[in-house]
Simulated scan of single mutants.
Amino acid sequence: MDTRTVAVFSLGGTIAMTTDPVTGGVVPALSAHDLLAAVPALQHLDVDLRVHDFRNVPSASLGFDDLDALTEALADAFRTGCDGAVVTQGTDTIEETAYLLDLLLPGDQPVVVTGAMRNPTLPGPDGPANIHAAVIAAAAPELTGAGTVVVLGDEIHAARTVRKSHSTSPAAFTSPATGPLGRIHEGRVHLHAPLAARTTFTRPTTGAAARVGLYTATLGDDGTLLAAMAEACDGLVVAAFGVGHVPEGFVGILERAASRIPVVLASRIGNGPVLRGTYGFPGSEKDLLARGLIRAGHLDAHKARLLLHTLLRQGRTPAEITAAFATAAH
């Protein structure tokens, strides 16, 4: 294989943290070059690295402006000849940033998002191994057309399905519905199955801000807080019980909201679909969809929020939003 070119963008996070002498806690401090210097095995790969210090913040502080700028920077890197890219960041929001990049970057070059569960001050930090695996993945022809993937612990996960499923474990990232796309061993990518088709939404934004709420159904909720949130939103995602059920008291609130703004019905479980028409009681999935809510399908609530936010910022019509979810959430 010819020498491959991979862009590396560092955003901060646990992988780039060191101890703050004032607080005694760890904070983002290491540069992209610092991170790569901790991985001497990269020198043995036939890969040309183009390194960018992009941000240096905890991932909880990343915003849509940061991701817009990163999307443009990645597109520029691909236009100037990069075969793939690695993004290092904090693990708190990896599943969200990866999915947003997957929606907005239509090219065949893979984007590999990685991070670390153990910061560099701890015994056995996982950041260097994850960076090594991520560079291998970004340079691999096998991932051409894969879009954005998440690589930690030598596992490759599709952005659409990946979840952070544990708060501290080094094996925190899983794809509950599908399992990983593949794994990396002996310096190569090994896929378990052919890559799935992707759906991207790349229309320019209208410039308007979009406030998309995410409301989780819980036992005994009378809907008062839901009504207040719906009034403040341009779009709303409801993380419902099970296959798409809410308390009966939610029904009128959601129907009124859906007459004004797009309201997406997702599941709070994060594994498995919202159904279409199995249950028929007030507040069931069949009832809510008949009242104008949009089915999230297999998308979890957090990813449904990102898709709705993207579509609203692009100025999509209600019909286009419904059609987009039908395509992306199958």
Rank of each mutant, 00 (worst) to 15 (best):
T216H: 11
T327L: 13
M1Q: 11
E248P: 09
L67H: 09
P110Q: 09
L306F: 09
R276C: 04
D66I: 06
G90F: 02
V27R: 14
G277W: 12
V86F: 02
A193G: 05
S167A: 14
T19Y: 08
H298I: 02
L143H: 11
G249W: 08
L105T: 07
A240W: 04
P176C: 15
D126L: 06
A329E: 02
V86A: 00
E248A: 14
A38M: 06
G235F: 04
P170F: 06
S59K: 00
H132E: 13
G280T: 15
V151R: 09
S267I: 03
A138M: 09
V87M: 04
R50H: 11
R291G: 12
P194G: 01
T161D: 14
L236R: 00
A232V: 09
T144K: 10
L219D: 10
D65R: 13
G13V: 03
L42C: 03
P204V: 13
A38K: 11
H44R: 13
L122H: 06
A133D: 13
V8Q: 03
G90W: 05
A138I: 07
V246P: 00
L214R: 12
V6K: 00
D221N: 02
I131Y: 04
T80F: 14
K303Y: 12
I253C: 01
A258L: 08
P110L: 02
A177K: 02
R291N: 05
H309R: 10
L42N: 01
E320C: 12
F9T: 03
D34A: 06
L100T: 05
G270H: 08
I269L: 14
A171G: 13
A41V: 00
I94H: 06
D154E: 14
D234G: 01
L11F: 03
D234Q: 04
A16L: 08
E72N: 13
E255A: 15
P262F: 05
V162L: 01
D83M: 10
A290D: 14
N56L: 04
Q109W: 02
T5H: 04
P58I: 04
V22P: 06
S169C: 08
A239F: 10
R188N: 12
R305P: 03
P128V: 06
K286D: 11
T88G: 00
A227K: 01
A38I: 06
T114V: 01
A301C: 09
D300Y: 14
T23Y: 02
A197F: 05
A38W: 11
I131A: 10
H33F: 13
A208D: 01
G63M: 00
F250N: 10
K286S: 04
L312C: 12
Q43Y: 04
A134Q: 07
D2S: 15
S31Q: 06
G145Y: 05
L11A: 01
F9S: 07
A7R: 11
T88C: 07
R55K: 11
P40A: 01
L191T: 03
A129Q: 12
G235E: 08
A304D: 00
T278L: 13
T19V: 15
L288D: 03
F64N: 07
E96N: 15
R305D: 08
S59Y: 08
Q314R: 08
V51S: 03
D76M: 05
A329S: 15
V150E: 09
